[in-house]
Design a binder for these strands. Sequence first.
RNA 1: GCGGGUUUAGCUCAGCUGGUUAGAGCGCCUGGUUGUGGUCCAGGAGGUCGUGGGUUCAAAUCCCAUAAUCCGCCCCA
Length: 471
Amino acid sequence: MSKPSTKPPSGMRDFLPTEVLRRRHVIELVQRVYEAHGFVPLETPSIENLSTLLGKYGDEGDQLLYRLLHRREALQRPLDRAHAAGRPALEAELADQGLRYDLTVPLARVVAQYGELPRFFKRYQIQPVWRADRPGKGRFREFYQCDVDITGTRSLLADAEVCSAVATVLEQLGFEQFAIRVNHRELLRAVIRAAGIDEALEGTALVAVDKLDKIGEDGVLAELEQRGIASAAGRALLAIIAPTSAGERAGERASDGAQLLATLRAQVDERGQRAVDELQELLSLCAHNPAGQHLEVRPDLARGLGYYTGPIFEITVPDLAGSLGGGGRYDDLVGMFGKKQVPAVGFSLGLERILVVMAEREMFPALSAGPDLMLCWLGVAQPEVVRVATQLRARGLKVEVFPEQAKLGKQLSYADAEGVKAAFAGILGDAELAAGALTVKHLSSGRQQKIPLAELDPARLDALAQDPPTT
RNA sequence: GCGGGUUUAGCUCAGCUGGUUAGAGCGCCUGGUUGUGGUCCAGGAGGUCGUGGGUUCAAAUCCCAUAAUCCGCCCCA
């Protein structure tokens, strides 16, 4: 038997301490901003019933679900049954649970389940999701999403709120150039109708349209034709969508967006016009929050997930092919769980996408995992070491004890080594013990001072670190 | 799902057209004698060359397969 691989499964990662700090840095900021917008936290299980998950994301999404194989008899029974019937066992017989694919569907389930939730449930949720996808840049099989959603209202104020939340997060993280692309599902439908494309082909048309900025007009036309949409209809579709987005690609902000919407409004039917009006209203609301200057009307934006019904969003930055996040309105999803219809809108930030871009641009502040003080000792009894460490910790210091007997030089260089990086070394020997003190050395400057144990606390260390160098 | 790159020491990588004990830098360990690291000097440990086949007298090197990973495309967070 060969040795097992020590790598984590494909598309999944171990997070070493420095990585955890970076992730935590971002997550904590996201939490603060979401909470400042009045969202409350929710956590749901990693595993959901397949009946909850299936049929919400479209065929492609269903394919990407991780399913949990039945165990023991529950697995054996369908296998036997299939074997007896001389057929392969069906996926549906072998599993009825799977790992969650996103955080929106679990939210919808929760909203359908608990009647006691506030009428306007504003929840945020930061948890991993799983997709059996091919890994790529900024794309993993296990990744965190940071969702904010508001259920219970059709008011566009809610849409504006979730946009404000994510825009604030990105700004506070230090992103400057990002766009919140916005479109409307009903507008897309209307445009497709206006182009004379069969409703049945709406889905395929949307997929092609979504690629406009990647493969260009000719590419979309070719793809549309390939999918059975007449080139005349394809051209009509592009005539509505393309000139506007191509002509003003550089930066349609709220003001230009209004212009663009007016042009679109003139070309669609009444339902389409209502969608345009909604976008118009969203723009005017967001003009007064941090999202406003990042909103960009994109009539070619489609998005994959099946459940969107109204405005749809996607966040893009110049140097990443994919998106940093996305969202939209999904007024029918909660209703799919039976009981009552509950409208909802939400936005999801992809934690790893944000981290990838931040790492590339070196946007992280200095984050240190190391202890405040490494307790180095020599020639004293170990119980004394433990006692001093305990005392220092009680005074609010993060203290690590050098675990072995070793030369002082060894201990000091370890304290300052990569991956350890204690800010200070505390030297405990006979002299210090007798004096009830500790020789404290600031490792980056080399400055050191003998300080009585009773005076040692974070403030005292700070003072030592900031002392002007004495030469 | 498609195309391309990469895979050699803990890390970053060299190893040309196949030829004896596979190298460097960094890191690590030991020492340069007493309680002062980040500089220097001297030593040292550490690799079944991703995995499995094949060609050959001989393979890290050539061929095939497979896996992991990265970069484009598709799709998505």
